[in-house]
């Protein structure tokens, strides 16, 4: 009688453990940083370009725009830069906008003169406040925006492999 009862207890506990294991394994893993996919691109009113001109906020509300966070002090940005140049040639209709992050105007301009300028223009965000609003964690980061909505957000370098895997599907 005792043996039978303990067998039942054991089986019930075992069953509960199996059920809980299945539940835990099927729970989506949330311990990773959320990208900004699906969010609306923040308002760019009052932001200035590297040349001092005001940014037109309406430009971000329609069409496809690739926004890249870069800085002259960022080594990975330098590695990524030639690929952005290629993208600007391969997709002439795609607007490439840079966000110059926590930098100085002179260093940023020198960087573009030295390495080429694939961007239509670069927004000057020396305090990083706009980037923070955008959900940027550092440089480089790249956002593909379609009609004002972020459809792809890449934290880190974009290269050919990443482009084909995550971005090309939108073209």
């Amino acid at each position: 009688m005792i043996g039978r009862l303990f067998k039942i207890i054991f089986l019930v506990i075992f069953f509960l453990l199996i059920v809980s294991m299945i539940v835990v394994l099927n729970t989506p893993k949330t311990a990773s940083i959320k990208t900004q996919d699906g969010k609306t691109f923040p308002d760019t009113t009052n932001l200035r370009q590297l040349n001092g001109e005001l940014v037109n906020p309406l430009e971000f509300t329609e069409g496809k725009i690739l926004v890249n966070i870069w800085a002259s002090w960022c080594i990975t940005c330098l590695v990524e830069h030639p690929f952005l140049e290629k993208i600007s040639q391969e997709y002439p209709d795609l607007k490439l906008v840079g966000i110059n992050y926590k930098d100085t105007i002179s260093k940023a301009n020198n960087y573009l003169e030295r390495n080429g300028d694939p961007f239509m223009y670069s927004i000057f965000d020396n305090t990083g406040s706009f980037a923070l609003k955008l959900g940027v964690t550092g440089a480089p980061e790249t956002f593909l925006i379609i009609d004002g909505v972020i459809v792809e957000h890449r934290i880190g370098e974009v290269n050919r492999v990443i482009w084909e895997q995550d971005f090309e599907v939108f073209f």
């Binding site: 509960l16 453990l17 835990v24 949330t30 311990a31 990773s32 940083i33 959320k34």
Partner: peptide, 26 residues
């Protein structure tokens, strides 16, 4: 909202119900 619940180091009991309730159930 900006970075996901990854950013919050405080865990909410409802996120770990199995962890809290299973020993109690047993």
């Amino acid at each position: 909202d900006r970075y996901g619940n990854y950013i919050n180091l405080q865990t909410k009991p409802k996120d770990n119900l199995v962890l809290y309730l299973l020993p109690l159930a047993i």
